[in-house]
Amino acid sequence: SEEELIEKAEKLRKEFEFIWNGIRFIIRENADEIRRFEELLKE
């Protein structure tokens, strides 16, 4: 039914948001290391 689809979509959206926030947190935490690594690659 349509309601089930909406519920599934909402659940997926929440899971995606949770994963995305996790990725963003990891990137933020490691931003300095990532930048340093990029500098090494440029040399």
Rank of each mutant, 00 (worst) to 15 (best):
R13W: 15
R35G: 03
K8E: 11
A31K: 02
L5E: 04
E39C: 03
N21S: 07
R28F: 10
E4N: 10
G22W: 15
F37I: 03
E38N: 03
E43P: 04
K8R: 07
E29M: 14
I27P: 01
I26Y: 01
R13F: 13
E39M: 07
L40N: 01
L12A: 04
E38P: 04
L5N: 03
L40H: 02
N30E: 03
E39P: 00
F16Q: 01
I6S: 04
E7R: 06
A9E: 08
I19F: 11
E39Q: 10
E15F: 15
F16M: 02
R13Q: 10
R36Y: 10
I19G: 00
I27D: 01
I6P: 09
R36G: 02
E39F: 09
L12E: 03
K11N: 04
E43I: 13
F25N: 06
R28V: 06
E3D: 10
W20Q: 00
E3G: 05
R28W: 14
F18I: 08
E43V: 10
K11D: 11
K8M: 13
A31G: 07
E39D: 03
F18A: 03
K11P: 07
R13K: 09
D32K: 11
K42Q: 06
I23S: 00
I19H: 05
L12C: 14
R28E: 12
F37H: 02
E10D: 08
L41C: 15
K42M: 09
I27Y: 04
E33A: 13
I27M: 03
N21Q: 07
E3K: 07
F25M: 06
K14D: 07
R13G: 11
E2R: 13
L40Q: 02
E39Y: 04
I26C: 14
A31Y: 09
A9F: 13
F18Y: 08
N21P: 04
A9M: 10
E7K: 08
L12Y: 06
F25A: 14
G22N: 08
L12D: 02
K8L: 14
K14M: 07
R35C: 15
R13M: 09
E10L: 08
L5C: 10
R36D: 06
E29F: 14
L5I: 09
R24Q: 11
E43H: 10
E7C: 14
F16H: 01
E38M: 14
S1M: 10
E39I: 11
R24Y: 12
R24L: 13
N30Q: 14
L5F: 09
I26V: 02
W20R: 00
R28M: 12
N21M: 10
I27C: 14
L5D: 03
E29G: 14
N21L: 14
I23A: 00
A9G: 05
S1R: 11
E7H: 06
I26H: 02
K14T: 12
I23N: 02
R35T: 05
L40P: 00
S1W: 13
I6G: 02
L41F: 12
S1G: 05
R36P: 03
E39K: 13
K11E: 08
E29Y: 12
W20T: 00
E10M: 05
G22K: 10
L12W: 11
K14L: 08
I34C: 13
L40E: 02
K14Q: 08
N21V: 13
K11S: 11
K14W: 13
I23V: 04
W20G: 00
I27H: 00
E2L: 14
I23R: 00
E17G: 03
R24H: 11
F16D: 01
N30L: 15
S1D: 07
R13S: 05
W20H: 00
I34H: 01
I26M: 08
E38D: 06
E38L: 15
